[in-house]
Amino acid sequence: MRGLMGKGNSVFWKATFVAVVALLLAAVAAASPSAPSKKPKGPTTAQLRAKLPANIRKSNTIRIATSIYAPVDYYKADGKTLTGFDADIMRAVAKKLRVKIRWAVIDFSAIIPGITSGQYDFATDLNDTKQREQVVDFITEFRDGSSILVKKGNPDQLRNLGDLCGKMVVMTQGSVQIPIANAQSDKCQQAGKSKIDQLLVPDDPPARLALKSGRATAYLVNTLAGSYAAKTENGGQDFQILAGVYQPQFAGIIFPKKSARLREAIRATLNAVIRDGTYRKIMVRYGVVNNAIKKSATNAATS
């Protein structure tokens, strides 16, 4: 009997020991830091390329139109090499898609006609508005707005839009600043003041020249471009930008209305560039990280 009891006790204690060890191992495993979970990867180059229209996959080339608005797009000192945060973002997009870019640097006023006529696959650096969305499709790329640029020292002591009554204001043809000036001009006349005189030019460089030469008292301009001009033109000695941003809005890339497939392929690739951190590095490098977006959207205008 004692032998049988001893054998039973031995079996019992062995089973108990195994159970305790198993519990201890489970507790250690639970307490141990788990391996960091990997973020799900974005789409592959092959998946992104598959979204492109067949003709672009065949040619391996995208035709992009833009205009000169530093720091968005501008030429390096050699006068030939296009640089700027938009140019770098588009190169990152092209690299992911394994395509080449054929740039066309044209007057701002010619961009929308060039897109609607099919001369270019898409164009960059336009503020997104409901009115423009009736003609072309947008995907968002960054944030911008409108501001007032004046000569260094602000000789006319301008403070805001209300001080532009009776002044000559230069703007680029077809820009979102024209409706802002028109609305303010109406307010000027309602208050018994003179309307705003407008000098319209094809692009940013002649607008800055008009301000510098005295043909215009102020330049109603995209905030990014105006801030950059104030900081860099002649070592920061030519212009200054007034406080205030009017009608903040998204800016981005435009496509013909019939190019939904290309539009969504570029949007997906831009979002991949945002996701992998390349986009943010570019925006930091150009000092415009506050104008960055978290995700590109289609036709996101609010006004």
Rank of each mutant, 00 (worst) to 15 (best):
R263I: 00
P256M: 02
A50Y: 10
V72I: 11
K195R: 14
K257E: 09
F17Q: 02
L161K: 08
L242A: 03
A265R: 00
K258I: 02
L242S: 02
V273R: 01
T129Y: 10
S32R: 12
N222P: 13
Y279T: 02
S147A: 11
I196F: 06
A210V: 06
L23G: 14
S37Y: 08
M5R: 12
G244I: 04
N299C: 03
N127S: 14
R275Q: 13
Y279R: 03
V289R: 07
S147C: 02
A292D: 12
P202Q: 03
I196A: 06
G174N: 09
K187C: 01
D144H: 08
G192I: 09
A92R: 00
I241F: 07
N60K: 15
A225I: 06
R2H: 12
T44E: 11
K187D: 09
F85H: 03
A104F: 12
T217P: 07
T269Q: 02
A94F: 00
K14A: 14
Y75D: 05
L262W: 02
S227E: 06
A22Q: 05
S259A: 14
I266E: 10
D203L: 05
N290F: 11
A301Y: 07
G166T: 10
A230V: 05
I64S: 07
L220C: 03
Q190H: 12
V245E: 12
P113Q: 12
T269P: 01
K151G: 09
S213I: 11
P202V: 00
V170M: 05
T129P: 06
T298D: 11
G192P: 05
R132T: 08
